[in-house]
Write a protein that binds this DNA or RNA. Structure first.
Length: 552
RNA sequence: GGCCUGUUGGUGAAGUGGCUUAACACACUGCCCUCUCAAGGCAGCAUUCACGGAUUCGAAUUCCGUACAGGCUACCA
């Protein structure tokens, strides 16, 4: 076809497209950002639930944009109308809010490079397609599904590469007359790329994460525009990321095979190439087969984003986990810098794992514990209260009524460099601090305590009478030792071990007795702190309660 | 079938030709500290980096095969 014929063809195919690509280029000017700023984007399809892997890539988009003072935008990629589900878009935006992974611009977040939803950009895509047809770089293809299947079968038998390329791209060189005829017959068509590539040539690509990769040049006449006039992912990616001035495309590993195509598209469209960063998928070693597989909605509960909210895993702790799989050196940094925030860590692509990242639930839990250990009582209270309001109203009310006490309990052993690490989730708090609230303690005392030992109630009553709670931990313990030795108990377990027959027991036995009576368990955080918060009256009440229960 | 990518302990992983007798973290085990637990300290846990060759004075690191795993090979993203 001559250029004149191609112009005629383009007009024939897209009579309603009147703008030129130059006009669009003007509507999407360069961004005014500092040197080195990254522009990233999260481009989900509203086809189902958001899962950990999606969250991971969005998280990476966010941190890289943030730390370079760039921009991170949300673009809804809804070009496949068939797979679209109701509420899919709302689901995406609400999850980004829930997980505090917030774009700086994009769909529902505003910005000057919209519309940020592909179904509203059809005219733009078609404008560029029209131009490509004029240039002879794209063409209408009228092949039926059946024809394509036949080609596929033939290729399978001949063991050659499967797809529409070279000699198989039969509609490539249709004459204008032939096209007109097919159009007149109402034959359906798609627009395909007229790939200028040769698979015998090698291209080298540098991925920000994976490094150097070699591919054969792309030579397939890939579909650019579907028969309903909407673009395929590939074409929309090229157009949108060019116009929106994305600098780094951070996306899942499953896209690496498309790199040659994408590079070719940028080339023939005359666009400046973007940088790619392909993130390895989050995988899991299957318990049954032992094989590595992608996480699955059905088998892995933590796959879905809802899991974290429902189980009371703090969002900030999940961020910590995402950070540890985003950059392998993050964890060490976090452990070394007890007083710093995630935002102070400098993420970098070359510290990103290349192979598949496996989900490690035990590690997540440990990170959660570390997270809680660094929070003071008041913060633990506030966050747990907020979570309980949504998931356990009854407990929320109890927290509210015991606010002062709870903050003190949550603050036990939080001073110093070695804070307690016993809570991993908001949902652990109720159980872990069951002794903190009188009404809960009274109703649950028996179910919690399973020991069979009996303790000398009178001795403990006498001890409580004598002991001074208004003092330091050290003095209290000295006084307790003193009490022990004047009542026939060894002041230290070591003494007792040397001559067990000389004593009724040792100071630890006395502590254990009090502990069981006031907390209902043999293990607890610092005993003196608990005694102090409760005060003598409540301690005595609990001792009486113990007396009642131990007498049957 | 073709094209890519990956494979280091119980787990997540560091490692980019010699400071590696393979870091760190999680888990586990033992000891210490200690009124219990948590935390913390110490020690143990891969004589070896999927396997086989090659290059090199020297390889977990480079190259070539093999096996296994994952991805792509859609008018899905």
């Amino acid at each position: 076809m001559t250029e004149k014929e191609r112009i005629e063809l383009a007009e024939l195919l897209f009579p309603n497209i009147t703008k030129t690509r130059e006009e669009y280029e003007k509507m999407y000017p360069e961004r005014n950002l500092p040197e080195g700023a990254m522009v990233t984007r999260y481009g989900p399809s509203p086809t189902g639930s958001v899962h950990l892997g999606n969250l991971l890539s969005a998280f990476a988009d966010m941190v890289y944009a943030k730390q370079t003072k760039g921009s991170f935008f949300l673009r809804i990629e809804d070009t496949d109308q068939k797979r679209k589900i109701d509420g899919g878009i709302e689901n995406i935006t609400s999850i980004l809010h829930d997980f505090d992974i917030l774009p700086t611009e994009g769909y529902s977040f505003g910005g000057n490079y919209g519309p940020y939803i592909q179904s509203e950009r059809t005219e733009i895509y078609q404008t560029y397609i029209k131009d490509l047809i004029v240039k002879g770089l794209a063409y209408p293809c009228f092949m039926t599904e059946e024809e394509q299947n036949n080609i596929k079968e033939e290729q399978a038998i001949n063991k050659t590469k499967i797809g529409i390329y070279g000699m198989y791209a039969v509609d490539r060189d249709l004459s204008l007359e032939e096209v007109k005829e097919k159009l007149a017959n109402n034959e359906e068509y798609v627009i395909r790329l007229k790939s200028p590539g040769n698979a015998n040539n090698q291209i080298e690509v540098i991925d920000c994460i994976k490094g150097k990769m070699k591919f054969p040049e792309h030579d397939m006449d890939t579909v650019l525009l579907k028969k309903d006039g909407t673009p395929t992912y590939h074409f929309a990616h090229a157009i949108d990321d060019h116009l929106m001035h994305t600098t780094h495309v951070i996306r899942g590993d499953e896209w690496v095979s498309s790199i040659p195509l994408h590079i070719q598209l940028f080339e023939i469209l005359g666009f400046e190439p973007v940088k790619y960063a392909h993130i390895a998928p989050i995988t899991i070693k299957d318990q049954e087969t032992g094989n590595i597989r992608k996480i699955s909605k059905r088998k892995d509960p933590w796959f879905g984003a809802k899991y974290y909210e429902e189980n009371g895993i703090p969002i900030e702790a999940l961020h910590l986990y995402l950070a540890t799989i985003t950059n392998t050196n993050f964890e060490e940094w976090y452990l070394d810098n007890t007083d710093k925030d995630i935002s102070e860590f400098e993420f970098s692509f070359d510290k990103q794992a290349i192979g598949g990242t496996s989900f490690d639930e035990a590690k997540l839990m440990n990170l959660c514990k570390t997270y809680f250990s660094r929070k003071r009582g008041e913060e633990v209270y506030n966050e747990t209260y907020q979570w309980s309001l949504k998931h356990d109203e009854e407990y929320a009310k109890l927290l509210e009524n015991n606010r002062e006490d709870m903050i003190k309990f949550f603050d036990i052993e939080k001073d110093g460099p070695r804070p307690r690490k016993d809570i991993a989730k908001y949902s652990d708090v109720k159980e872990e601090f069951s002794y903190a609230i009188d009404s809960m303690f009274e109703s649950e005392f028996y179910s919690k305590y399973e020991g069979e030992k009996t303790y000398d109630i009178e001795l403990i009553k006498e001890y409580v009478e004598e002991i001074n709670l208004d003092t330091t931990n050290e003095e209290w313990f000295n006084a307790t030792k003193e009490f022990a030795s004047t009542h026939g108990y060894a002041a230290s377990p070591k003494d007792y071990k040397k001559n067990p027959d000389d004593y009724k027991g040792h100071v630890g036995d006395i502590c254990e007795a009090i502990r069981v009576m006031i907390t209902g368990r043999t293990k607890s955080p610092d005993l003196f702190s608990i005694m102090k918060i409760l005060g003598k009256d409540r301690i005595n009440n609990r001792i009486e309660l113990y007396r009642k229960y131990s007498n049957g």
